[in-house]
Design a protein around this nucleic acid. Structure first.
Lengths: 354, 354
DNA sequence: CACTCGTGGAGAAACGTATCTCCGAAGGCT
DNA sequence: AGCCTTCGGAGATACGTTTCTCCACGAGTG
């Protein structure tokens, strides 16, 4: 009885009679044998570990559960990874460098990497697949997934227009992440197209107190908007409170929409129309894309051709990394309708239209 | 130039002149050399990885961000681990068994393990340190941390009594986790002591809709309480809504306290008194205890004696595992005071009093 | 009989690190 | 001069897998 035989028996490889396999398994069970994950990782080059990197705001070590989006996304990602036999390691980009170096990762998910992120560049250079949530600016990534923020904003603006809005304002952030940038750009482009003067206020999105102040500023302007879209989760309550202070009725005097994953907006007075980014879909997709890349699966055909080449040629593809745009979902409630206060949900567009 | 020299130079070990060290480091830098985490783990037996296990409710893969408590606790735990050079792997207890086996963990944090949890037993038997959040029933663990739930409940009941409550009700859960059990027992003991008939309703805490129904049941009883403590985060809003339906004014007709980490209760109408379990403190403590155990540090003296014995003798201590009770914090708001509506915060007791 | 072929299994190398042991050389001491 | 000590570094081994190669043996085949 050799080591080879045991290994083959436990892994279902080699050519062994079933009798030998079961005998080996029985003994292993009796001994309480557990294969060494470290040795297996060393030998196979696979750890079964995926990094989940979150960008950090402010001084907090990391804020990944601050917004419901991150929490939901991380949950879906963990779940999807587990389902395919991988586990997730939460690793803020700001972690001590030695922690990053001490962990064997098969791949990494990065959430909204800043342009020229040195961490992402280094990972990519060392051959670790990187899939980003949020269209990357200049980072070289294996693939990326993002919502169609432009379409989402345009859809909301059109929706508000149809509800009778004449001057639509925006509550947006000061940071330069993709979400904020694309959404704001889409707003400005829409304004240019329809000939409306932009009316917006910005604030540091990571500061919960600043949101209320910014909402107040927006409604205090001389060119006060008659409809507002708030880019961040707490904006709905902030705007509602500000509207009350100014004696504005929602939706009669002010139409309101905000981006949020929270269902508290179903029970506010009035209920507020929200845009959902569907973080669970994003998380699942990101992880599946990453694992496909790790395992060298061409997700189109299921057949693996790239695997026949040495690993270093895998990521040599020139041209932009493949991206997937995922649809958002507008949950229409009373705050954005002057006619019928009934809640309706827009059918999500099918994914894959880049 | 040998492998030994390189290893020593990079790790700051051995006796080498500084000149050699810096030369080696420079070449390593130029080559973009990164040591193999897998090989290091194999050789040293340390992976730098800590498992974070969450018990699962219902059919959802895992619900660890459902309650703010878990989210906060996990965040603090991740942060504390990172600060000491470890990373956290989120691993639901219900994960496929092959995932557990495939990861080299230096230790595991388990959140509220059920009695006789086979997973915990196996980990403990294989020598992996296990620290639990929540006093374990019959599980053999290395150490545990929990809030002083009994003291917390008694404190709340006294607080409500002092505010004038004559009949205090409880909204509790059907599950048998430590938190629910200890809190409910403390309530019943208090009732027995002061001679009040217990008035409580139970519901499956993982079902968000069931909470509102149970709150309604509680206030619909013929022996309707004039004060209620709700054990779970959403109970505050549920009870408030139920009180409105029955035309009860808070705090005039009904005093309200619930356990929550959310600060939405500062802005409800009226603001609601909450009990905070201080999950960040718990998460930090749990992780530090675990890492102390991993590194064989006797947290009392800083001197390591146990390390001198073979590892298998480390956990052989008989007697109950060491536990730490952490204080809670009662944030008193208008809902539990008939006199002064000003918010006050009780001073937290110092930790370490078991 | 000589051969091929399939079956069951053994041997050994390799993954990349950390560490234990040992060795030569140079300098200081008696 | 001989010996001890310190310095700087080389060699070898082990960690526990996976996997490639190879071997022995028996059965079938021409």
């Amino acid at each position: 009885m050799s080591i080879t035989t045991v290994s083959d028996a436990l892994n279902g490889k080699g050519r062994l009679p079933d009798e030998t396999r079961s005998r080996v398994r029985e003994v292993a069970e009796r001994l309480g044998y557990r294969p060494s994950a470290a040795a297996r990782t060393l030998r196979t080059g696979r750890s079964g570990l995926i990094g989940l990197t979150v960008t950090t705001y402010g001084e907090e070590p990391f804020t990944f559960t601050e917004f419901a989006y991150f929490a939901e996304m991380a949950r879906a990602a963990t779940s999807a990874a587990l389902g395919r036999g991988y586990a997730l390691v939460v690793l803020p980009a700001s972690s001590r460098h030695d922690v990053w170096g001490n962990i064997a990762l098969d791949g990494t998910v990065v959430i909204d990497p800043p342009d020229q992120d040195p961490l992402v560049s280094e990972l990519y250079r060392s051959g670790v697949p990187v899939v980003s949530d949020g269209k990357p600016g200049n980072c070289p990534v294996t693939a990326w997934v993002d919502n169609d923020h432009e379409a989402a904003v345009l859809g909301i603006l059109d929706h508000l227009s149809e509800a009778g809005a004449r001057r639509i304002g925006l509550l947006t952030g000061t940071s330069t992440d993709t979400y904020t940038r694309l959404s704001t750009e889409a707003y400005l482009a829409w304004c240019a197209k329809v000939g409306q003067e932009p009316v917006y206020e910005t604030y540091p999105a990571h500061d919960p107190a600043a949101g209320a102040v910014a909402a107040d500023r927006l409604l205090a302007r001389p060119d006060r908007p008659d409809a507002v879209y708030g880019l961040f989760d707490p904006n709905g309550t902030d705007l509602l409170a500000a509207a009350r202070r100014y004696g504005l009725r929602v939706p009669d005097d002010l139409l309101l929409v905000c981006c949020s994953e929270s269902d508290v907006y179903a029970t506010t007075e009035p209920p507020i129309t929200t845009l959902s980014l569907k973080p669970r879909r994003i998380g699942t997709t990101v992880v599946n894309l990453l694992i496909d890349a790790i395992e060298g699966v061409d997700s189109g055909t299921g057949v693996d051709i790239a695997r026949l080449f040495p690993p270093r040629y895998r990521t040599a593809g020139n041209g932009p990394p493949p991206g997937t745009l995922m649809p958002t979902e507008l949950i229409v409630r009373a705050s954005s309708q002057r006619r019928s206060p009934r809640t309706t949900v827009s059918p999500p567009r099918p994914p894959g239209e880049v």
